[in-house]
Structures are given as C-alpha cells and as structure tokens.
Amino acid sequence: MRLIVIAKECLPGRVKTRLTPMLSPHEAALLASVSLEQTLRTVRAVEVDERVLLLDGDPGGLDTSGFRVAAQAGGRLDERIAAAFDDRFSPVLLIGMDTPQVTRGMLQAVVDDDVSDAWFGPATDGGFWALGLRSARGDLVRGVPMSQSDTGDAQLRRLRRAGLQTRLLPVLTDVDRIEDAVSVAAAAAGTPFAAAVGSLGVSTRSRTAALAGSARR
C-alpha cells in the first residue's frame, strides 16, 4: 500500500488562518508545523510499501526521512486529491496533516484489511481526514465539493454508488479553529502537539474568548 500525507508548507499567514487573530500567524504556523511533523512520525511507524508526502510548497527543514516528497497537482482541492489516485498505484490511503491525534493502529488497520474496497475517515466538521481505495481511481474524487459541511457525505455517497465496500474509520477532529486545537490536544495528551498547545496557552485563550463572547450576549 502507498500511504500519502497531503500537506501545505507551514508559512505564517498561509496555514491555519482560522486560528488567528486569537493566535498570531507565526503561532498558527507553528501549530500546523507540529501537527504535520507528528503526523509524519506516526505514518513513518506504519508498515507500508511506500510513504509519500504530497506537498504544496517547500519541505524546508521538515524531516521527510522515509518519505518520497512530491509536488501537489494544480487546481481545486478535489482535483489535487484526485490526481493522487490517478497513477493507478494500488492500494492507496491518503490522509491530511490536520489530525495529529491519528494513531499508528488506526492506519495499520487499513493496511492489514484485505477485504474492504475503500476506506473513509469522517471528520467532525463534515469533511474527511482519510480516503483510501484498493483500486485507485481519481474520478471517484474529482468533482466532489470540498470544504463544505456536506463534503464527507458527498464523498461517501460517491464511493457507495460505485459499489465499493467501504470501511468507516474513526471520526476525528481537524485542527481548524482554536476549540479544535484544545480538543485535539486533550485527545493526544503527552504528544508534541499537546505540548505546543500548552506552551502557547491555547486553552486559556479559548476560555477567555468564550467568556468574552458570553458577556457580549
């Protein structure tokens, strides 16, 4: 199996913009970088034929050992994801960089599954954090509306309408908003991501913002 991590270069003002202004652009980029690095470490521990970092940008000082680094295709997000399934290397599992709480066990269970035709990891925001196909086909992704509350449902329908026996993976939270960072840090206690959230005082900032919001209502 090929295991792909699709990611963006962690530059201030370019990643995790919904964490600002509560965090500075630099702090938001730092959290994104820690999330990506932790995801790569987890994937590095999974027994697969090939690991690929599908990157929008430059790896810079990122530790990419154990990965083949490839540039993302152009176009909308659905087209960039679909391109990862177009070269017919099979099976393939693609995950994002925003779920540092993912575990080796979750991913190894997919690798060891010799029954399912597809694997799908729903996200709490209505999207998805993982998509896998035993027989890679980009057309099963291309055209699915991305970054919407029904993106996950649309993608899952696409798989099922193709007659694929689809295994559902655990529901995970993407780190997009400040509350997500707090929730994911709690789920990934003892990890570098949780430590980064703690060092930035994210939980305190989140509570302060919540109290301020309540006072305004």
Rank of each mutant, 00 (worst) to 15 (best):
A82Q: 07
D153I: 06
A123M: 11
D125M: 02
Q155C: 04
A187Y: 15
D153P: 03
A187P: 07
S135R: 14
D117M: 03
S116L: 01
F128R: 09
D113L: 01
L93C: 04
D78M: 10
Q148L: 04
P100T: 15
L172K: 05
R76G: 14
S65P: 00
R167W: 03
F120L: 05
D150V: 03
L131H: 11
F85R: 09
T151Y: 11
D125R: 06
S183E: 10
A82V: 02
S183W: 08
I95N: 01
P91V: 12
R161K: 10
A154Q: 11
Q148Y: 02
V184E: 02
G96N: 13
L93K: 01
D125K: 02
S149G: 03
V175M: 10
S183Q: 10
D87T: 13
G75P: 05
G66K: 03
I81Q: 08
A162F: 15
V111R: 13
V111G: 04
G121F: 02
V144H: 09
W119I: 05
P170M: 03
R161C: 03
G152N: 01
A136N: 10
T99D: 01
S135I: 01
D86A: 12
A70W: 13
A181D: 02
P100H: 15
A118R: 07
T124D: 09
M106H: 15
V141I: 11
L77Q: 14
Q165S: 07
A162P: 07
D113R: 06
A136L: 05
G75M: 12
F85H: 14
